[in-house]
Simulated scan of single mutants.
Amino acid sequence: MSRYGDFNRDPCPWVILNDTGGAFSMGAIGGGIWHFVKGAKNSPKGERIIGSIAAVKARSPILGGNFAVWGGLFSTFDCAIKGIRQKEDPWNLIASGFFTGGVLAARGGVGAATRSACFGAIALALIEGVSFAAERFMGPPQMMQVSEMRPPSPSP
């Protein structure tokens, strides 16, 4: 079933918390792997495990926090836009990417916020387009209409 017709999800306040926690976990686990390898590479021989663990402890929570901020903002904007528009379609996600990118870059000024907002919208539009194409390509075949199933009339 398409995610736009999925009514099994929790209501918006809980979705925001779930998405924020999931984004933190994803960032912390991915960051842990990344910084473990990076810490081992940058540590002297004989101290690689200790250097890896130190790098993971120092940097993974930061990356997890960055992911959580992005995920929480995105989910908050998505819920707000759903509430305002009273519909659930790809435009909500694209607009959420736009607003999230703009807010996260707002400290850099109007130009940086605009560029980041446009990048967020384009990235989400590409993701939605690929998702739509994959769903269409991998999904079950379309049902034929009754008019298409009639045998052709015999020609005289």
Rank of each mutant, 00 (worst) to 15 (best):
residue 123 A to S: 13
residue 59 R to E: 10
residue 79 C to P: 00
residue 86 Q to K: 14
residue 104 L to Q: 09
residue 10 D to E: 14
residue 152 P to W: 10
residue 96 S to R: 00
residue 121 A to K: 03
residue 134 A to G: 07
residue 143 M to F: 11
residue 39 G to F: 03
residue 141 P to W: 08
residue 155 S to P: 04
residue 59 R to G: 02
residue 153 S to A: 12
residue 133 A to E: 14
residue 30 G to M: 00
residue 53 I to H: 06
residue 97 G to C: 02
residue 120 G to V: 05
residue 109 G to V: 08
residue 36 F to T: 00
residue 34 W to S: 03
residue 62 I to Q: 15
residue 107 R to F: 07
residue 32 G to S: 07
residue 67 F to Q: 06
residue 6 D to Q: 07
residue 12 C to Y: 01
residue 132 F to K: 09
residue 101 G to Q: 05
residue 66 N to M: 15
residue 63 L to Y: 05
residue 105 A to S: 07
residue 104 L to A: 01
residue 36 F to A: 07
residue 26 M to Q: 12
residue 60 S to A: 15
residue 58 A to I: 04
residue 96 S to N: 01
residue 4 Y to D: 04
residue 75 S to A: 15
residue 94 I to G: 00
residue 92 N to P: 05
residue 40 A to R: 05
residue 39 G to L: 03
residue 6 D to G: 07
residue 144 M to C: 05
residue 17 L to A: 15
residue 59 R to M: 10
residue 71 G to D: 00
residue 98 F to K: 08
residue 118 C to M: 14
residue 131 S to K: 05
residue 149 M to V: 06
residue 42 N to K: 11
residue 149 M to S: 11
residue 133 A to Q: 12
residue 65 G to I: 06
residue 54 A to I: 11
residue 43 S to E: 09
residue 72 G to Q: 03
residue 99 F to D: 02
residue 40 A to W: 07
residue 51 G to M: 09
residue 19 D to Q: 13
residue 38 K to I: 13
residue 62 I to H: 14
residue 114 T to P: 00
residue 3 R to Y: 11
residue 106 A to P: 05
residue 95 A to N: 04
residue 84 I to T: 10
residue 155 S to M: 14
residue 69 V to C: 09
residue 120 G to Y: 06
residue 91 W to E: 13
